[in-house]
Design a binder for these strands. Structure first.
Length: 424
RNA sequence: GGAGAGAUGGGUGAGUGGCUGAAACCAGCAGUUUGCUAAACUGCCGUACUGGAAACGGUACCGGGGGUUCGAAUCCCCCUCUCUCCGCCA
């Protein structure tokens, strides 16, 4: 959530930034918000003043009652009734205005960082770098959805039977590969100084609001209505919400957490050839890294996180590229996002396997996640996170890129985790 | 799921209608004393909104929401959560 003071003090800048994110009617909405803010303060001033008078009269009555001057007290009482009525009306107005402001603020996305390229779609994303050689496959090489059948390691039909489309069953070396990747990613995160956490995978409404999934994006999450809980779409939600309503001591910063969770996405309305196989699932596994940092350090940390994620891809020997997302393609809550994509050779396309973002104060403002400056002022921290990594597309790329006519070679770093070197 | 008890500031915990934004203690911060450490002493020590250049004010907040009252941490109603006992159970 954007801060009202920023809208107030840097209105033109905010409007320009919203425009860059292709937000419609930015100028009008911001102007309307400022108007509401103006009203709010006026009403609040009036209200506070009346309340203040009511408070002092109440005190007076108390004193009179004590000294036994009942009649004077009674006459004062009658004086307050009109005051009370007016205060009540103002209080109602005030909370109506506050609600409206809140709603309007929730609607506004985060402002993109100055380095974010302008643009509307994925076409406009900027390729920051590309790394690794794209392998040449043997004749008759298969896409991963054929390979998993051939070696019987991931079973979509079974998942269909048990749950539905997009919930595969991993079997044998396929299951082992999942476990190996999770352990590898977590071990690497520990080495990089992250603290491992294992959060709940169901979250309440407050947590959904904290990181920006609610309101308006409940459609992407599975909702357990009996208890009003949501299955997490990413570990970002529970892990970041650990720090909701916190004032973090400066010497604890930056906070670096990593956690493995399954993730659940309804992905309503997405079908087609490019979502075949492991490309898009309703349930998948992911190790997420989250950092909470001082505002002045957050972009340095974003780079650090980006290199860390790249180091994983390098160790897995996967060709990848890094994109800086354009204003139109980035997430609602993000100020700057890098996407990491691996090349899936049999499909001949890049697959997103990580998204690494700086949210600046946008989430922190909703979370009330703050620190105290040296002068004692409470200020919002910055939150960041990245996938490190999401498994399914990594698996797809490993299977496709490393296939040979007589089996699929596993990346060396995984051998100790797998207990085998080759599938088939 | 049943029965009971409870939810107060960073922590412990007092407070059953006005003198309580909230005692006391602990932790924390600043200082005095001290050869150093320790101890002792003094002061400070919640959050948000808001007025003000500032000094300094105003309002709200004692789990959340509503109500009674001139006045609510304190009384009433609803909700949530925690604890204890019972039941069930990985």
């Amino acid at each position: 959530m954007l801060q009202l003071t920023v809208l107030r003090e840097q209105t033109d800048f905010v409007v320009a930034a919203l425009n860059k994110k292709n937000y419609k009617n930015a100028a009008q909405e911001v102007a309307a918000l400022l108007e509401l803010d103006q009203q709010r303060r006026q009403v609040q001033n009036e209200h506070d003043e009346l309340q203040s008078r009511a408070n002092s009269i109440a005190k007076e009555i108390g004193a009179l009652m004590k000294s036994g001057e009942r009649e004077k007290a009674e006459s004062l009482k009658s004086e307050t009734s009109e005051l009370k009525q007016r205060t009540k009306t103002l209080a109602e107005q005030l909370s109506a205005i506050e609600d409206e402001i809140q709603k309007a603020l929730y609607k506004l996305p985060n402002l993109p960082h100055e380095s974010v390229p302008a643009g509307r779609t994925a076409e406009d994303n900027e390729v920051v770098l590309q790394h690794g050689e794209i392998p040449t496959l043997h004749a008759g090489a298969l896409p991963h959805w054929e390979l998993i059948k051939q070696y019987d390691i991931i079973d979509f039909d079974l998942g269909n039977k048990i749950t539905g489309a997009g919930f595969p069953v991993y079997k044998k070396q396929g299951a082992r590969l999942q476990r190996a990747l999770i352990n590898f990613f977590l071990d690497e995160a520990m080495k990089a100084g992250y603290m491992e956490v294992q959060p709940p995978i169901l979250i309440n409404e407050a947590s959904g609001y904290g990181t920006g999934q609610l309101p308006d994006k409940e459609g992407q999450m599975y909702h357990a209505t009996a208890d009003n809980l949501y299955l997490i779409p990413t570990a970002e939600v529970p892990i970041t919400n650990i720090y909701r309503d916190e004032i973090v001591p400066v010497d604890k910063l930056p906070i670096k957490n990593a956690g493995y969770t399954p993730c659940f996405r309804r992905e309503a309305g997405s079908w087609g050839a490019d979502v075949r196989g492991l490309n898009r699932l309703h349930q998948f596994d992911k190790v997420e890294i989250v950092q909470i940092s001082l505002p002045e350090k957050s972009y340095e940390i974003l780079e650090e996180m980006s290199s860390y994620i790249q180091s994983l891809l390098q160790k897995l020997e996967l060709p990848y590229r890094v994109l800086r997302l354009c204003g139109g393609d980035m997430g609602f809550t993000s100020a700057l996002t890098y996407d990491m994509e691996v090349y899936s050779t049999a499909q001949g396309r890049w697959l997103e396997v990580s998204s690494c973002s700086n949210f600046e104060t946008y989430q922190a403002n909703r979370l009330k996640l703050r620190y105290k400056t040296e002068s004692g002022k409470t200020q919002l921290l910055h939150t960041l996170n990245g996938s490190a990594l999401a498994l399914p597309r990594i698996v797809a790329a490993i299977l496709e890129n490393n296939q040979t006519p007589d089996g699929i070679n596993m990346p060396k770093v995984l051998h100790p985790y797998l207990g085998f070197e080759k599938i088939g």
